[in-house]
Design a protein around this nucleic acid. Structure first.
Lengths: 222, 222
DNA sequence: ACGAAGTTCAAACAAGCGTTTGGTTTTTTA
DNA sequence: TAAAAAACCAAACGCTTGTTTGAACTTCGT
């Protein structure tokens, strides 16, 4: 009503930045090393304070440079988040692809292996996964849609694994694969919210017990 | 390391406000009505943009008043978030208490009923639950600890229900109740991230299928 | 009708934000 | 060793943020 919003953060359109080329150093030799450190610092800071609450200043502090200097590595804070999420998706997708590439595995075996590896990866890369699952909403609409589209594709693969098992009669027929995928992902992803490395629980134990739980939910007769 | 100050005058760091009493109107007659509208507006806005990204201005816009006027109802933005989370916890706790109060129910029946009601509530109060589970971290350490303490108590009750069922041999003996509670909560809570009201899926369907999944994970032999 | 309680306005504030610019220092490469 | 590339500093910018203050309305019980 009052106080006009000059910058279009949030509702409605995402501001179109003038499509200026990335400033990241060309990957010759060790050229991308500092670039990687920036990503790691950002991961740490975003995880600790949440993307929206974390400032560019915080990341600069973590690196020991001035915040202005950061802009030799990033285009904007949001582009930085996007790069993080994109990287995370790459790695998450790789896990699924590996499992799908193994030959001679029954659907349920494949599912168990997928869950196990994914949970183990999550508990070993808490910060990355926490940002990946917690902070998508903070992206501009355009980029958010891209990430969510990738994620949906990913989920469909998992759902079709469930459907395969269903056709073999190993999963109740009245169960909706797509819907069940959500429950599966819930148990799996929620790990980022409660697991604390350095506790008594090792990543492999979490992975195994989580997989047990999920396989039970999948195969139990109604 | 430290950002230089443009015009340096008295670097007063972190001013403490003098713990002034709440300004919410005393509950006489309909006195708390506007107060409730403030909570609802905040719920809507926090859910839409995320707590950190949402501004006091946004909430004021939602109510059609100036942002300064909001401070007759709240002490601070953070206190507002706390009140929301506290209210949510009250309602979530009530669900569990109701289920625990029912007599003559076996542990597993109780668990199923709890999950069902909780998921149904979540899908019917998406904004509230999304904030409750997504934005705890943004509280001050003091208040966050209080919320998390409450939550832990809540979870322990659920874990002990699992333990009871275990003693009856209805749940595998090698399963850790506290650990499994995390998986249970994962499936249950994650609903706030994917469920969209107005779709083909009704809250009761989600509740029932989620409960099925979880009960399966709980009782399936290893 | 009166006074009090409740509600809102109007305006300002200090601080912090993300980002830009142009120059300087350091490192790499040839 | 000199040129080129990369990394960083220093300072500012325009803007938004949460919050305060003091006065003006509006509602309502009596």
């Amino acid at each position: 009503m009052v106080e006009p919003k000059a910058s279009g953060r949030g509702t409605g359109r995402a501001r179109k930045s003038p499509a200026k080329a990335r400033r990241a150093p060309a990957n010759k030799g060790t050229g991308a090393r500092r670039d990687q450190e920036v990503l790691e610092a950002a991961t740490k800071v975003f995880h600790a304070r949440g993307y929206a609450d974390a400032s560019v200043q915080d990341i600069a502090d973590e690196l020991g440079i001035l915040k202005g200097s950061l802009y030799h590595y990033i285009d904007s804070k949001e582009e930085l988040l996007f790069r993080l999420l994109d990287e995370s998706h790459q790695e998450v997708a790789a896990i699924l692809e590996e499992v799908l590439a193994i030959e001679g595995l029954e659907p349920l075996e494949r599912l168990r292996l997928y869950v196990t590896r994914q949970v183990e990866y999550t508990s070993k890369n808490l910060a990355k996964m926490a940002i990946y699952y917690h902070d998508v909403d903070q992206l501009s609409e355009e980029r958010r849609k891209e990430v969510l589209r990738n994620r949906r594709t990913h989920e469909r693969f998992v759902a079709s694994l469930i459907a395969e098992a269903q056709e073999r009669g190993e999963v109740p027929a009245d169960l909706d694969p797509a819907l069940t995928t959500n429950y599966l992902f819930g148990s799996m992803i929620w790990v980022y919210r409660w697991y604390r490395p350095g506790g008594k629980l090792r990543p492999q134990q979490v992975a195994a017990t989580c997989a047990d739980f999920i396989m039970g939910g999948l195969t139990a007769p109604r």
